[in-house]
Design a protein around this nucleic acid. Structure first.
Ligand SMILES: Nc1nc2c(ncn2[C@H]2C[C@H](O)[C@@H](COP(=O)(O)OP(=O)(O)OP(=O)(O)O)O2)c(=O)[nH]1
Ligand SMILES: [Mg+2]
Ligand SMILES: [Mg+2]
Ligand SMILES: [Zn+2]
Length: 572
DNA sequence: GCCGTTTTCGGCCCGACTGTTTTCAGTCG
């Protein structure tokens, strides 16, 4: 287990046990260990553990114990105090640490099945502190535990967001609304939708009524005067918050999060003699309002530059914003071309010319077509002969696109043993090569990593969708990403941020790790049709979550500079 | 358990909603 995971586990157990303050201390240490650029072993060796924010004497000792012995007595002890069955109970929405523990101790309910049985026998209803409504709510919740924990793809969430917003505009006549939460922060998946609507206190009930009237609402979990929570038909939870205009900025901050970012901001406010909530930043001594209408104003009064939502995770962004040293994050307009696209030569929907017309409209300076190689049979991948034929077609088409340089690539199979699909001569005939794993996903970590590293040493230019995960469908392959990032730095192979929403591969968190190890990146659509070319900005969002600037991303460069990053096969 | 634009000890984010409660604890955001 990683050290960070170990610390998170301690935090969680202490939280369940109701221990005050320590959970936050472990949480903070875990977050900072997790976002450490260097190897923790090295930090230990150089006795610099306590330089990590949130790590003091006690946690440093525990990290050392774990790294030297592979075990941590403290965690072993804690784990014994919190059995698995209790954690299962707490996964039921509505059951927190207190109630779960009471069911466990007082009613001897030790599993979800036992909870179902106890509910059926009305034992819970008749227990002090519980009642009719608790029984009914738990009965509903206990059947949906797995679904309520599912995270949703960005696409699914976005469709619901759009139709819900349209409904509210019509039914409540409101126009200022923002989907906040993890959605606004650009996470690759979202646990729920968090919708913020601006309305006067007088109008708030109208908005909330319209919200709960939304036809897709399956269950109203909560309905008050400023807030409501519902569950939609395909088990997506939506949280609504309504605030007046003068608080909209403070509320955006609150509702966008992350929770850790919020807590850090509020702590900073306290240290400066202020207090921050979702209504305003105010002076502590006399309650005088300082800011609240806009985010910028709240950050400003805290002595901070405005922080982009994508990096609001309390991973050092607040300290940088205080010094005015935030990175200038990648923007969609920085992208000068797409390097991973398909046509109907392999598994794309339309021909190259159609794709090129769309790319030209985007104002791209270059466009890479990277149809699959023959090894991926189900896509009718190309062999050397067909790539040569495609090249001649490109040469003809190029005249019709004077401002758009067409590059011929190949999404080339990385075979099980790490060799590439086409021979060296065929590879030299291409402008660039996108290496990709589409087979033997089940290899163990050592073998899988060796396979990918070997390919990276064999003249590929971009490593496509490095982890091969499909959100909600297929887990990531077992890959030592740190080793891959180190290899990327050594060879100049670019790591891809594949912007297709069920891939997002790499995604923000791992982009961050790879960037810190010195890798560079390419943000590509992996489009198989014209509309999919529009995916690129989603990839940019993942890049921003990894703190990338334009200089980390090869396809922000003008053509000439880009070409120096491609063509490893020709130089080999 | 950590830490310092007031502190090396005293504080640690802050609020909405609900059920069961006779005054607020628990859960969630
Ligand atoms: N100050 C404060 N804000 C919180 C707390 N919990 C949640 N929030 C804020 C920040 C969150 O981003 C926002 C929405 O809460 P969610 O539970 O929906 O989390 P979020 O959207 O970040 O992640 P998700 O993908 O939904 O799991 O509410 C808290 O304990 N304190
Ligand atoms: Mg959320
Ligand atoms: Mg939420
Ligand atoms: Zn592809």
């Amino acid at each position: 287990m990683e050290v960070a995971a170990l610390l998170y586990q301690i935090a969680k157990i202490l939280e369940i046990q109701g221990v005050p303050f320590k959970p936050r201390a472990y949480q903070r240490a875990a977050l900072n260990v997790e976002s450490l650029a260097e190897d923790i072993e090295r930090v230990v060796a150089e006795d610099r553990l306590e330089e990590i924010p949130g790590v003091g004497e006690a946690i440093a000792l525990k990290i050392k114990e774990y790294l030297t012995s592979g075990k941590l007595a403290y965690l072993e002890k804690l784990k014994k105090e919190v059995p698995e069955g209790l954690l299962a109970l707490m996964a039921v929405p509505g059951l927190g640490p207190k109630k779960a523990q009471r069911l466990w101790k007082e009613l001897k309910i030790h599993s979800l099945d036992e909870l179902k049985a106890a509910l059926a026998a009305h034992k819970v209803r008749d227990h002090p502190g519980f009642g009719e409504k608790s029984e009914a709510d738990l009965l509903k919740a206990v059947g949906n535990v797995a679904q309520s924990q599912l995270r949703h793809s960005l696409f699914e969430a976005r469709q619901h967001a759009d139709t819900l917003a349209a409904h509210l505009r019509k039914d409540a006549g409101k126009s200022t609304m923002v989907f906040a939460g993890s959605y606004r922060r650009g996470r690759d998946t979202v646990g729920d939708l968090d919708l913020l609507v601006e309305a006067s206190t007088k109008d708030a009930p109208k908005v909330i009524d319209a919200f709960t009237r939304y036809p897709l609402v399956d269950d109203v979990l909560e309905k008050g005067t400023t807030r409501s929570r519902v569950r939609l038909k395909p088990h997506l939870q939506v949280d609504l918050r309504v605030v007046p205009a003068e608080s909209f900025g403070a509320a955006m901050l609150y509702f966008t999060g992350s929770k850790e970012h919020n807590i850090a901001l509020r702590s900073l406010a306290l240290r400066k003699g202020y207090t921050l909530n979702e209504y305003a930043l105010s002076r502590k001594k006399d309650g005088r309002r300082l800011a609240g209408a806009t985010e910028d104003e709240v950050y400003g009064n805290l002595g901070l530059k405005w922080i982009p939502p994508e990096i609001r995770e309390n991973r050092g962004e607040i300290e940088l914003a205080a010094k005015g040293h935030l990175p200038k994050l990648l923007e969609p307009s920085d992208i000068r071309g797409d390097l991973h696209t398909h046509t109907n030569e392999s598994d794309g929907a339309v021909d190259l010319e159609t794709m090129l017309n769309a790319a030209a409209k985007k104002g791209y300076a270059y466009y890479g077509v990277s149809d699959h190689s023959a090894g991926l049979r189900i896509t009718q991948g190309l062999d050397a002969t067909r790539y040569r034929r495609q090249r001649r077609a490109i040469e003809k088409l190029q005249d019709s696109f004077p401002k758009l340089r067409i590059l011929q690539g190949s999404e080339m199979e990385i075979l099980r043993d790490g060799r590439l699909d086409l021979d060296a001569e065929a590879r030299r005939g291409l402008d660039y090569i996108v290496g990709a794993v589409h087979s033997a996903f089940g290899l163990g970590k050592r073998e899988q990593t060796a396979r990918v590293l070997k390919a990276m040493d064999s003249g590929i230019d971009i490593l496509a969708h490095p982890t091969c995960r499909r959100v909600g469908k297929r887990p990531a392959i077992e890959l030592d990403l740190e080793a891959v990032a180190d290899k990327a730095k050594e060879t100049g192979v670019l790591l891809e941020i594949d912007a297709t929403p069920d891939r997002f591969d790499l995604w923000g968190e791992v982009v961050q790790v790879c960037r810190e190890r010195g890798a560079r990146f390419a943000v590509d659509s992996d489009a198989h049709s014209v509309p999919e070319l529009d995916y690129v900005p989603f990839g940019v969002t993942q890049a921003r979550r990894g703190w990338l600037t334009a200089r980390h991303v090869a396809n922000t460069q003008p053509l000439k500079a880009l070409l120096r990053d491609l063509g490893h096969a020709k130089r080999a």
